[in-house]
Write a protein that binds this DNA or RNA. Sequence first.
DNA 1: CTTGACTCTAACGCAGCGTGAGGCTGCAGG
DNA 2: CCTGCAGCCTCACGCTGCGTTAGAGTCAAG
Lengths: 244, 244
Amino acid sequence: MKLLTVGEVSRRTGLTVRTLHHYDACGLLRPAARSGAGYRLYGEAELRRLQHIVSLKALGFTLDAVRAGLDAGAPTLAEALLQQVARLRETIACQHALLARLEQLEQQLAAGEVIDGDTLLSTIEASTIMEKYFTTEQLETIKQRGEMLGTERIHEVELAWPQVIAGMTAAMQLNKDPASEEVRLLAQKWHSLVREFTGGDAGIQHSLNTMFKQEAGTTQQQTGIDPALMAYACRAIAALPAQA
Amino acid sequence: MKLLTVGEVSRRTGLTVRTLHHYDACGLLRPAARSGAGYRLYGEAELRRLQHIVSLKALGFTLDAVRAGLDAGAPTLAEALLQQVARLRETIACQHALLARLEQLEQQLAAGEVIDGDTLLSTIEASTIMEKYFTTEQLETIKQRGEMLGTERIHEVELAWPQVIAGMTAAMQLNKDPASEEVRLLAQKWHSLVREFTGGDAGIQHSLNTMFKQEAGTTQQQTGIDPALMAYACRAIAALPAQA
DNA sequence: CTTGACTCTAACGCAGCGTGAGGCTGCAGG
DNA sequence: CCTGCAGCCTCACGCTGCGTTAGAGTCAAG
């Protein structure tokens, strides 16, 4: 019956001495005995327990969970395993979502001339906010629509927007009747541009509206559309003759 | 030009007051000014910066990284993004590997009568140790072979091993010549059982040997094969007439 | 003037150890 | 016997990103 010191256990297991001290301190693995000088001495049983500890930790359990699992019986352990699976699945799902966003940004970086700091931050911001107001499915739908339209058309749209916004802003500031002839063309253009984004999906349309209401500040900064302009544009569109 | 107190900023952003204090303390977001009473006052610029902070944090950056990214220019930020993508990919890969192991254990739990504590721990242990000595590809290969063989055959093998081991141990203890007639049948059986696991893959065979050498203690406990027996068995197999 | 809602600073707590500091122990060589 | 050196011991702070009291000042309303 041989007893080992911390250093020896450390070499055999690859754990650090400090870690063994820690396990002792928190009651996870107590040495079998102490030498006269106070040296920790571990026996076979402790090595086995340590093996178990390492294994469970490798499965992602916290030290508390490991202790609980070892001190309680197999049913508890089995249950803990299932819980751990569930937790892990969830975190992986989150990480995946995150990765998707990061990769999208990465693509935009690779594809674009966009190395300007503010633009980059705006792009990031936009994706963050979108995450907040659209469901995963909706984002998926939007992405697919984007692929259908193609890069070129998207570019056109991005160029078209500022003009429409500028026109609408001017009309509003001149107090023109939103239902008037002159505003009608602008309203039609606006409407079609929005449909190009929503694809006619009512849910997406709704989320979009909510976002513009809640995040007025940020969206205004990014698009130049403030609540007043939005209201004006909505009235103009509402005044359009039936379906275009 | 309106200034906001912590509470107001908190309500607008959803961050806690404590968080704002923290960001102030660590220099990530300093208030624009302080009131006479020492209240933190934030302006528009700070709100924008805060927006950026939140966005970057949502991408998984540490506060230090966020500060670095915001204080340095866009190139740094872009670079950091790429790094973040790489890091995330790696952690996801790890998590996936972990999940795979956990799910395997889950299956065994669901399928088996194995609710005994020691057995469960042994199973976990085995998978942990295998992870250590076999490459991912090898494990994949082993898994596929397992599926090819089918549950039933695996069960048979698991039953056959103890008998062979017992026989070989007895032969060794009786000091029988490993090359003798009597031992030959045992050696053949042993050899074929090993091949059933390795599938004839030299790499897997090698990893298996390494594992048995390095983890003598644990494997002996789990299989009943100690180094001496292993050596004896190897000699017996080496003495077999050419290919079986 | 009192209340209640808000603010301030200061400081511990969390998980799981890493990383010293400062001080014994135990064995080998001179 | 003394000296070294490796190994052991016990504190105890540090890291991340805040949560959470605790004690105390501030502001606007009743």
